[in-house]
Design a binder for these strands. Structure first.
Lengths: 178, 178
DNA sequence: CCAACAAAAGTGAAGGGTCATTCATGTTAT
DNA sequence: ATAACATGAATGACCCTTCACTTTTGTTGG
């Protein structure tokens, strides 16, 4: 017989993932210890292992919830707004740092690679929906480049700090018209 | 009085950096132990610490020598050749994996960030040299997007495996004409 | 030219820490 | 009362770094 409801369990799980998310963002996966997650979450060591069987599982959980927003239209304004959103996330929450950690880990772990690849595919599909009047091959090539520039922008933000999105907006528009 | 020549010392140092490069590429920074570098290099633990004072210093040395080639011209053929070069390096040597590690670490370490930022600036400068008849502002925006697509392509290769460079070549050409 | 010596280079076992994970015990809700 | 849930000290493995010791090389005095 369960002692608490599912919503309680979900809240606890989220508490752990949020704490891990915070520490992973500021210190990276390798430099974040279980003790760090314990401290940040306010739970106990043993309690965390009731919800996750290993640190790796927590890493996966954090990567899975990493859904950024998508652009809503392919006008200059909408695209620029989207990049400004990415920029703000990087500035205010260090999100680009976390993304860089995720890509590095995904490059080593097939499990994570599959998760990230699926998220990238979802974003490409979302962008494809917004492209009018093109051959399937064109759409595929355009979305591929589009998403690469967006994640590339995030990568640059992670390493070089705040950057004006203007060159990237311009590049994205050029690709759409090419 | 030195017991061996400078060329000997240089060779030893290279031996260490090469060993570290190999292991860092296949297992990442965090999952590569000093013992791994010892094994891979064929030297002893103590010997390595004669050439580097810490593991972090070896990481820096590996990052510093990470100079990819630059594109030599901005024709479709030259640009495509360049991307094929990046692709081959990723396929044959797992180079994209190492680059992903470097970006992740640079996102956390100001020292590494400075090194990577300088390498990116060098590549932007090299590309800028190839752009004819544009305003300085245009050149800056174009090179920014150009380099981001190239490193973004590497990032995608790291996570998703081998990818045809065609969409990226096309995007790069579109940017140059935008 | 050779033998002793000194300094450079190399070695690897051990120190000192950190860290992920477990488990015996305590607490709470039904 | 009992089973779910929580706790955190203990465990055992791993890992970076050091250092006392050995080997090698260049030098020097006879």
């Amino acid at each position: 017989m369960p002692k608490v409801g599912q919503s309680y369990l979900d809240a606890r799980r989220k508490q752990i993932v949020d704490a891990a998310h915070t520490r992973f963002t500021s210190h990276g996966f390798a430099r974040t210890s279980m003790a760090d997650i314990v401290t940040e979450s306010g739970l106990s060591t043993g309690s965390i292992y009731r919800y996750f069987t290993s640190k790796d599982e927590i890493v996966i959980a954090v990567c899975e919830q990493g859904t950024e927003a998508f652009p809503t239209a392919l006008t200059v304004e909408a695209v620029n707004d989207f990049l400004e959103h990415v920029r703000a996330l990087a500035r205010d929450k260090g999100h680009a740092r976390l993304v860089a950690q995720i890509y590095a880990e995904a490059a080593l772990s097939p499990t994570l690679a599959a998760i990230v690849a699926q998220q990238l595919a979802a974003m490409r599909a979302a962008v494809a929906e917004l492209i009018p009047d093109r051959s399937p091959n064109d759409v595929e090539q355009i979305t591929e480049a589009f998403v690469t520039i967006c994640s590339g922008y995030s990568q640059q933000l992670a390493v070089r700090g705040d950057l004006d999105p203007a060159p990237f907006t311009r590049a994205l528009m050029a690709i759409l018209q090419g």
